[in-house]
């Protein structure tokens, strides 16, 4: 009945979901949860303010990924950015790579303008579907950054090899850049080319940081509990393996 070598994975998933679900229910029932400030998120207002002062557009892209978790984290940030851009009358240009992401992105942006009380300010032509082809998307975004002379460039989502091309293009036009991705191979590129970097799973704190959403705060606490267990397993596993004991690694291979 079970797929071979996935029993421990199922157990790990159930424990993770249980801890996250329990933390969400605690947060919803009023447990106070504090989160540390994240420089990339703190700098969002600065990036939006810069665009407002310079009278230039603000650019946002959720990356090359389809509707994956990292893209949703990016869209969570977009909700806040679009709302602020609407409040300050900053032109927000959003570029999207995947068609299914485009449909959701436009909806998120439209909703944010509605929440800001300025639905008429939303320009559908500024939410641009570029191309599902990686390099066509990269060249399209570079073109937008150069032609529109953006004041700020925010890239939060799933990025692959095009990450550095986009970041360097933003740097060339002198934009303040905030970037975030969970792709460990692309983080170094963002670190060298951008002003602020949201590292890996910090992205998933967007909802908790901007909206102080209790569900997101609880979820973050749950994620941290799972991380503590992972760290414990890594330490115990390293000690056991060092002394030639394979109990834990054998158990995890089941």
């Amino acid at each position: 009945m079970f797929v071979a070598k996935r029993i421990f994975d199922l157990f790990a998933l159930l424990v993770s979901c249980g801890l996250i679900g329990w933390s969400i229910s605690l947060a919803v029932r009023g447990k106070k949860i504090d989160i540390r400030p994240i420089a990339g998120f703190e700098a969002m207002d600065e990036a939006i303010g810069r665009a407002a002062e310079m009278g230039k557009p603000l650019h946002f892209t959720p990356g090359f990924g389809g509707l994956v978790a990292a893209t949703f984290a990016g869209l969570e940030a977009l909700g806040y950015i679009a709302k602020k851009a609407a409040e300050y009358d900053v032109r927000l240009i959003v570029t999207v790579s995947q068609p299914e992401t485009y449909a959701v992105t436009e909806q998120v942006e439209r909703q944010a303008y509605l929440e800001a009380g300025k639905p008429e300010s939303f320009r559908p032509e500024d939410c641009r579907f570029i191309s599902p082809d990686q390099w066509a998307y990269a060249s399209g975004v570079v073109g937008v950054l150069n032609r529109e002379k953006v004041a700020s460039n925010i890239m939060i989502g799933q990025f692959a090899a095009e990450a550095l091309i986009l970041a360097e293009a933003g740097n060339t036009v002198g934009a303040v850049q905030i970037a975030g991705t969970t792709n460990a191979y692309q983080i170094p590129f963002f670190v060298v080319a951008c002003d602020y970097v949201i590292l890996g799973d910090e992205m998933f704190a967007a909802g908790a940081h901007f909206a102080k959403n209790q569900v997101h705060l609880g979820s973050l606490r749950g994620e941290d509990l799972v991380k503590v267990i992972c760290i414990g397993l890594i330490v115990v596993g390293a000690i056991l393996t060092t002394f030639g004991n394979k109990t834990l690694s054998d158990l995890m291979a089941k």
């Binding site: 996250i20 679900g21 994956v68 949703f72 969970t182 460990a184 799972v226």
Partner: peptide, 17 residues
């Protein structure tokens, strides 16, 4: 480290969805 933390984040977002 980044991958493990990212994967836990993926689980949380997927669960919420």
């Amino acid at each position: 480290g980044v991958m493990i933390a990212g994967a836990i984040g993926f689980v949380a977002v997927s669960l919420r969805i």
